[in-house]
């Protein structure tokens, strides 16, 4: 655990300094959590809503956090679950296939005013969206957030071996998609 995590946890323990500690937490992790959420839900407006909800949940629970895992993997876990819950609600029915969620995200990519990537960037995002959910999570956390497999394992609750397999399959699928499209 690094110094800033220790400072935050020390501050949030006391009701007198909880708000100060929480503000430090928000400032420290807002960008990392935002981009993690944004890559999952694509749209800025959705990411903004989910990030705020994530911080509200963290505020409610932070004084009970007792360092059994590192603070930022716990924060990531909450933001990933909040994002996946959002996607599940968007899909409207649990009987719809995963493709339904992927199509919603592809529409968001097309319509979001806060995305104006070039053709290659757009194609890469399309390829990532078309990955199965678990592979997409692993790819984002490993490739963009540069987390270790052990950290991703804590966040997603999956074994390191399964994560390595998922990541390599995801890379292969992305290569195939980009080559054939």
């Amino acid at each position: 655990m690094n110094n800033i995590e220790q400072d935050i946890l020390q501050l949030v323990k006391s009701p007198l300094t909880k708000e100060k500690g929480f503000n430090l937490l928000v400032k420290t992790y807002q960008e990392r959590l935002y981009w993690n959420i944004r890559r999952i839900v694509i749209s800025h407006d959705d990411a903004d809503d989910i990030l705020q909800n994530t911080f509200v949940k963290i505020w409610r629970a932070i004084d009970r956090f007792q360092s059994n895992s590192s603070l930022y993997t716990w924060l990531y876990r909450i933001s990933v679950n909040e994002s996946l819950q959002h996607l599940k609600q968007q899909k409207r029915s649990i009987f719809l296939r995963e493709e339904a969620t992927q199509n919603i995200l592809l529409e968001r990519l097309e319509s979001d005013v806060y995305f104006d990537g070039n053709e290659i960037q757009k194609k890469l995002q399309e390829a990532i969206i078309r990955l199965p959910e678990k592979q997409r999570m692993v790819f984002n956390l490993k490739y963009y957030d540069e987390l270790k497999y052990e950290e991703i394992s804590e966040i997603l609750g999956t074994s390191v071996g399964a994560l390595k397999a998922s990541y390599h399959i995801a890379i292969k699928k992305l290569e195939d998609f980009l080559t054939n499209n």
Partner: peptide, 23 residues
């Protein structure tokens, strides 16, 4: 952002206040 994603200018400067209001 380098991947083609953008955010409104000043977004992270105001986020903390929005979160406080929501709480």
């Amino acid at each position: 952002n380098k991947n083609g994603f953008k955010i409104p200018e000043g977004y992270f400067d105001t986020l903390s206040n929005k979160v406080q209001d929501k709480i």
